[in-house]
Simulated assay, not measured.
Amino acid sequence: MSIKLINIGFGNIVSANRIISIVSPESAPIKRIIQEARDKGILIDATYGRRTRAVIITDSDHVILSAIQPETVAQRLSNKEDISDEG
């Protein structure tokens, strides 16, 4: 089984196998998910102080904030050129 890693900006990498969804942070339900994750201590802020443009939800219920567009993350997820570990 190979592990596929996705760059989510600024050198931060997430395992593609763990991603459930990639969404925009604009809606009220997503803002509520972000606040609840912050309160539980399962929020990972990978924006480096920039505006949040994508919210990545993982199968471990962690919520990851990224400063790149959801479309860009999805495109990197589907590309074969991303960092991967064959072993």
Rank of each mutant, 00 (worst) to 15 (best):
S15Q: 14
A28Q: 15
R38Q: 14
I83L: 13
T72I: 03
R51P: 00
R38C: 02
I3K: 14
S60R: 08
A28P: 00
G41C: 05
I34L: 01
T52V: 13
I19C: 04
S27K: 15
K31I: 02
L77M: 15
L43D: 02
A67K: 10
L5G: 01
I57S: 07
I20D: 00
I30T: 15
S15Y: 12
F10L: 08
D82Y: 03
H62R: 09
H62T: 05
S2H: 14
G11I: 10
Q69C: 01
I3W: 11
F10D: 13
A67V: 04
V63C: 01
A74W: 05
I64S: 04
I20R: 11
N12V: 06
G41H: 10
V73S: 13
R18F: 04
S15M: 08
V14W: 02
A54H: 12
V14M: 09
T58C: 05
N7H: 10
L43W: 07
R50C: 01
H62F: 06
R53W: 12
G11E: 01
V63S: 02
D45W: 06
H62K: 13
A54C: 11
S15I: 02
T72V: 12
E36K: 08
L5F: 09
S84M: 03
I44T: 07
T72A: 07
Q75R: 13
T52Q: 07
S15K: 10
N17V: 03
E86K: 12
S21N: 11
I33L: 00
S27F: 05
I3D: 10
T47M: 01
L77P: 01
D45F: 05
I30R: 12
H62N: 11
N7Q: 09
R76K: 13
Q75K: 14
I33Y: 00
I30K: 14
I64Y: 10
R53S: 04
I20E: 07
R51M: 07
A67N: 11
I56W: 09
A28S: 13
S78L: 15
G41W: 08
D39R: 12
